[in-house]
Simulated scan of single mutants.
Amino acid sequence: MTAKLKISGARIFDGNSFHDDAVLLIEAGQVKGIAPKSAEHDGAATIDASGLLLVPGFVDLQVNGGGGVLFNEQPTVEGIRQICAAHARFGTTALLPTLVTDARDVTSAAIAAGAAAKVAEVPGFLGLHLEGPHLSVARKGAHDPSLIRAMDDDDLKELLACMRAIGCLMVTLAPENVTKAQVKALADTGVIVSLGHSDASFETACAYAQAGVRTVTHLFNAMSGLGHREPGVVGAALASGPLHVSIIADGFHVDPAVMGIAIRGKQGPGRIFLVTDAMSTIGTDLTDICLNGREIRRKDGRLTLANGTLAGADIDMLSSFRFAHETLGLSMEEALRMASAYPADAMGLSSRKGRLLPGTDADFLLLTPELHLQSTWIAGREIFQAGEN
C-alpha cells in the first residue's frame, strides 16, 4: 500500500464532530488532515468510500481473549496476535490484552509476550492490562481467590520493568492488597493504575485516587456499591472528576437504566468509556472455555462459572457501541467517543489514538449507514474487509 492515501466520499467523524463533503488525508500511517473533497494529495492513492461513515477505530482497554484464544491460557506473542486479529473484525484497532489473576509464572510469561509483541509491532497491540492478582477476595468476581494476594517488592519491580519495556500498562488493583506508596510508585512511572475488584469505602477510594489511581475498572461490577450513607467505590468513581471509568455495555453486567444514570451523573473531566471484557469466545462458536482450570459456560450472550457468576463478557466493541447508541439512546457521536476517544484519553494517548486529527495514527473504520463494519484500518493499512476470510 502506498504511503499516501486519500479516502473520499465518506461522512467523516474526527472524534469531535462530523465532516461532510471532505476527504481524509493519510501519510506514512498517520492522519495528515481532513480537507475539502477537492483537495490534492500528491502521489496519493484514492479510496472511494462513497455512502459510508468513516470513524476512529475502537480502543478497548480490557480484552481477555478472542478468536478462540484466552490470554491466560496462551500468554505468547502468537496468542496476542490472534486476539488482536479477532477483534479487528469487530472494529477494534488498539487493545490491551488482559491477564486475569493467575500464578506468578503466568504473569511473567504474559509480560514477556507483551514486550515481544511490541518489538514485533503486532497490529492492534497497544500494551497490557494486568487485572490482579492484587485484588479483594471479598469482591473477587470470577477471579480465583486462591491466586489473589498482596503486592510485594518483587511484584512492584516486575511491573515497573514491564512499563519500561512496553511503555503502555494498565494495572487493576484493590486497596485491600496494595499500599498507597505502591500506587504512587506505579503512577510516577506512567503506569495507569485502575481501582477494581474492591470493597473499599468511598473515603479510601478517594485517597487512592489522590495517590495516583487514574481509572476505575468495569463500574458497578465487583466493587462496593453506591449507598445513600456510604457511596463506596461506585460513588468515588462518579464523584471524582479526574477518574476515568470503564463500563461493560452488554445489558447483563449493568442494567441499561443504571448505565444511563451513571453516564449522566459522572463528574468530569474524566468520562465513562466502554470496555468489552471479552473472552476467547469472540469470533467463534465455542460454547465452553476454561480459566484457571474452571469451566466457563456460554449461553444466550452470557459467560458464567458453574455457580452463575459472570466470567468476562461475550461481546465485541462494535456491539458495545451499538448498545450505547441504540439501547441507551446516546447520540452516535457520544457512543463513538465512548468506544474510541474516551479510552484513549484514559490511557493518556489522546495525541495518538481515538481521534482522526493531524498527527494521530490513521486507525479508522468504514461503517455502513446501518452501522455494520465494512473495513478496519490500522496505521493507514486495511487489515480487515467484510466478506473476506
Rank of each mutant, 00 (worst) to 15 (best):
P231L: 14
G212K: 00
V234R: 07
V137T: 10
V122N: 02
P133S: 07
I261A: 12
L303A: 08
D316H: 05
D105M: 03
L95S: 08
T93E: 10
A113E: 08
I111R: 03
H87Q: 01
L365I: 07
D255F: 04
D21W: 02
K6I: 13
L349F: 09
P231V: 02
G66V: 13
S8I: 08
F323R: 07
Q385A: 14
A28Q: 09
F58M: 12
K157G: 14
A386R: 14
A181S: 09
L25P: 00
I315N: 04
L147H: 01
D255H: 15
K6S: 14
A346D: 11
K266S: 02
A211S: 09
S194C: 12
L24Q: 01
D277N: 04
L126P: 01
S198N: 06
N307Q: 03
R229L: 10
V59Q: 08
D21E: 14
H244Y: 15
D152W: 00
L147K: 13
T327W: 00
S280C: 15
P358E: 13
Y342G: 02
L24M: 04
V258W: 03
T217V: 11
I83K: 02
T92Q: 06
A10V: 13
Q267S: 13
G348D: 06
G15H: 07
T107A: 13
P133Y: 03
R352A: 13
A22W: 05
L173C: 15
T46K: 03
A339D: 12
G212T: 08
T376E: 12
P358N: 10
G141I: 11
S240L: 14
A313D: 05
E158D: 12
V183F: 08
E370W: 02
I34E: 04
R229S: 10
V31N: 06
K140S: 11
L274I: 13
L173M: 15
S350P: 02
A313N: 04
A161T: 08
L126G: 15
D48C: 01
D42N: 10
C162R: 04
P358M: 08
K184V: 03
S375G: 05
A174Q: 07
G212W: 10
A187D: 06
G354A: 11
